Computed example of a mutant assay.
Amino acid sequence: MNLAEIETFLTIVNTKSITRTADLLFLSQPTVSHRLNSLENELGFPLVIRNKGHKQVELTPKGMDFVVLAERWMSLWKETLTLQHNQERMLLTIGCTDSLNIAVFAPLYDEILQSHSHLDLDIESHHSNELYDLLSEHKFDIGFVYQHLHYKNIIAEQIFEEKLYLVQSEHPVIPRAQVHTDELDSSMELFLSWDDNFQIWHDRWLSSVTRPHISADTITLLDRLWKKDENWMIAPESVIQELSHYRSLYVSELVNTPPNRVCYKIRHRYPKVSNKLAVEYFEHELEHFLEKRHLHIPVGVVWHS
């Protein structure tokens, strides 16, 4: 087996098309087919089902099993190239949701960079479902998500959960420690879908009334667009803590309580050997960071941390 054959096979798996694979790899379709045939001959079994008239490529049962081995083979090849150009510095790639990066882990990243001068961080923000796909392709070493999805080669571990509250401006429309969503003006809501469970809860209690005033996918953007005293949002503890650094807030508990938001650490079942030390160091620092992380959200008062 060689790199070209493995790369071609994995591209076929992702695109489910010989034509699309040829376009992406800048090859002719006969070349793609030749590489696939060569790989199958070497393995001694077919990888795809050849049905005339079917535009979409389907894998054989052994072809589906071989995907895992091909991904590991490609990962080892990339690690070998890394070793060939080995330097003293270590690189850790992290995939995370936007709100986790900004509201939870930014202080951890800062601590690690200050205390470990030989470690570089490559940090990317994506949606939870995207992070599972990227991790399965070894695009990063460790990830943090708010969804527990079942992927064959990904291990998910719950690391913390947090409560959600109603957040109003320092001049709240409803200045009480406890509020029901029926009392809220949905047309003034600033909305971000924190996870699937929150979305289901929100659809039940709020979305049927009217659409939010502003919907966004980053807390930074919501904060920038929060201009009116009548605006309000429902947010988890970590986000409220972050927002309180920039504006005064009035926080209330919701009588019809939203489900807690659960954070999961995800990692590949077959991690890169070359990044083992960097991952171990990060997980050690993460454990200490979570142990000393205690949030206190005061309710029924104007608060600015």
Rank of each mutant, 00 (worst) to 15 (best):
Phe160Asn: 06
Leu76Phe: 12
Glu162His: 10
Gly44Pro: 13
Gly300Trp: 13
Ile219Pro: 04
Lys55Ile: 10
Thr218Gln: 07
Glu161Tyr: 02
Phe191Lys: 14
Val251Glu: 00
Val301Gln: 13
Met233Tyr: 12
Pro298Ser: 12
Phe140Gly: 02
Asp23His: 01
Glu242His: 11
Asn153Trp: 07
Leu221Phe: 15
Met90Gly: 08
Asn153Glu: 11
Ser274His: 13
Val104Ile: 15
Ile174Gln: 05
Lys16Asn: 14
Gly143Pro: 03
Leu108Ile: 03
Glu280Tyr: 11
Glu242Met: 03
Asn41Pro: 00
His294Phe: 12
Arg211Cys: 04
Leu277Glu: 15
Ile219Asp: 02
Pro236Ile: 04
Thr97Cys: 09
Leu135Ser: 08
Phe105Cys: 11
His118Thr: 05
Ala103Ser: 14
His150Gln: 10
Phe9Tyr: 06
Leu92Gln: 02
Trp232Pro: 06
Leu39Arg: 00
Leu164Lys: 00
Pro298Ala: 10
Thr181Asn: 05
Gln158Cys: 02
Asp122Ala: 12
Asn14Asp: 13
Phe140Pro: 01
Ile49Pro: 05
Val32His: 05
Thr31Pro: 03
Ile112Cys: 01
Ile214Thr: 15
Leu149Thr: 03
Phe160Ser: 03
Leu134Cys: 06
Lys55Asn: 14
Glu283Asp: 08
Trp205Cys: 07
Tyr146Arg: 15
Trp194Gly: 06
Phe289Leu: 05
Phe66Tyr: 05
Phe9Glu: 02
Phe140Thr: 06
Trp194His: 11
Asp98Phe: 04
Glu58Val: 15
Glu71Thr: 09
Ala103Glu: 04
Leu43Arg: 04
Phe105Arg: 06
Val179Gln: 04
Asp195Glu: 09
Asp185Ser: 07
Glu280Asn: 12
Arg20Tyr: 10
Leu59Ser: 05
Cys263Ile: 12
Asp196Pro: 04
Val262Lys: 13
Val279Met: 13
Ser238Arg: 01
Glu170Cys: 10
Pro236Met: 06
Leu100Ser: 01
Val239Arg: 02
Leu92Lys: 08
Phe282Leu: 00
Glu124Val: 13
Phe9Gln: 00
Val13Leu: 12
Gly63Val: 09
Leu10Gln: 09
Glu189Ser: 13
Ser169Arg: 12
Thr181Gly: 03
Ala106Trp: 09
Ser115Thr: 00
Gln84Ala: 09
Phe9Thr: 02
Phe9Lys: 02
Trp73Leu: 08
